[in-house]
Design a protein around this nucleic acid. Structure first.
Lengths: 203, 203
DNA sequence: CTTATGTAAGTAAACATTCACATACGGAAT
DNA sequence: ATTCCGTATGTGAATGTTTACTTACATAAG
């Protein structure tokens, strides 16, 4: 294995790196992001601590690996929806539901994306979270503007505020779901929320 | 000082306890919640680590002290607004702006309230954050229901979803403000957001 | 004289990271 | 095929740092 290329540059990922990232995601989902330690991760993989450092330079690089994976998948969805020539409200729904499903099926994603408070001390992690959010904001803005131009979305709305409302309400819903020990059906509640949001946008 | 009463029961707080809490809030605001360590806090107060343990049993008790302080102030505001016989939309605005000002003027409040990911491993902290949120949700629900009955708020709205939208969008606005290094006027943006939210509620 | 408060030094645990050494493995040379 | 060698991968123990927290002792105050 070319150490330089994979451990440092990391445009692509080796099979082992993918396995480690996958185990890390599981660990976060089962325990919590606080329990994602090198020791726990190595134990889960049945290896010793040192072995992980053959594949990643640092723990932060593992976290970045997770974030980049999510980001790549999210970007694909956003681009695909943007390209589709569906009505703006349908595109809005597609993005909303895709993300909602993702949070429901992979609770670790939410755990990571919502951990700004833990990442605060690292520039790269902060930047990655920031990019993830900005990416969603930008796509929503394009879709909403297009919808307004095509007369599918109400002209009077304030775009920035609508974006904050959309992303913020989903985030809060997921936060509540997690804080309350997942005692309600996230997807169902999310669909109701979506209905409400679409009402705001409709002409 | 009666150690048992103040260190353990803590219905009231001594002057020293208040000073420590105040210093902790400042520390969080200046640095971050990650930098709130016993050592840093003691240094800020010009004492040694051990001295803090004369006033609090653990670091978690200090954090709980902060949360309880915020909670008490928030509760006072919520109760006062609820008692006032102002129109529902005005009450909604009062609560929204009170909280927005609080976040603007005391950024540490947001840092603490938004740190669920860090608190996950402690039951008491999780519960305190939960209570804080529930308190706001409950008050908003009462105000909105009352507004609907009095014909001041649109009948068709879904109450739960509206609450998620309100709290979620403010949280996200503050999160963005913090992540972007406070590069926009939080209060101004918040007022715009409020305008948008009031539109949803209006008949 | 008793109690509250502070200090200095230390403890123990958790954590990320490193390093000297061992093994496994694939291809090249014999 | 067998030997040989370089590289990739893993191990076990150790390192150094950062934590919260403790304890024996001192001082101040009422």
């Amino acid at each position: 294995m070319n150490v330089y290329l994979h451990k440092n540059a990391m445009h692509t990922k080796t099979e082992k790196q993918r396995q480690i990232i996958e185990a890390a995601i599981e660990l976060i989902a089962e325990k919590s992001i606080q329990q994602l330690t090198i020791k726990n991760l190595a134990k889960k993989l049945g290896v010793t601590d040192g072995a992980l450092y053959r594949h990643f330079n640092s723990k932060i690089d593992i976290l970045l690996g997770i974030l980049h994976m999510f980001q790549a998948e999210a970007r694909e969805n956003l681009e695909q929806v943007k390209k589709s020539r569906l009505p703006a409200l349908q595109q809005f729904e597609d993005i909303f539901l895709y993300r909602l499903k993702y949070f429901t099926q992979r609770p670790a994603v939410a755990a990571v994306i919502f951990s700004e408070s833990i990442f605060q001390n690292d520039v790269r992690l902060t930047r990655a979270v920031n990019e993830f959010l900005t990416m969603h904001e930008d796509t929503l803005r394009i879709i909403i503007e297009r919808g307004i131009r095509k007369g599918e979305i109400r002209k009077g709305i304030l775009i920035d505020e609508t974006i904050y409302i959309t992303i913020g309400s989903m985030r809060y819903l997921v936060t509540r779901w997690r804080l309350k020990g997942r005692d309600f059906d996230l997807y169902e509640k999310g669909v109701q929320l979506l209905g409400n949001l679409k009402e705001l946008l409709k002409c």
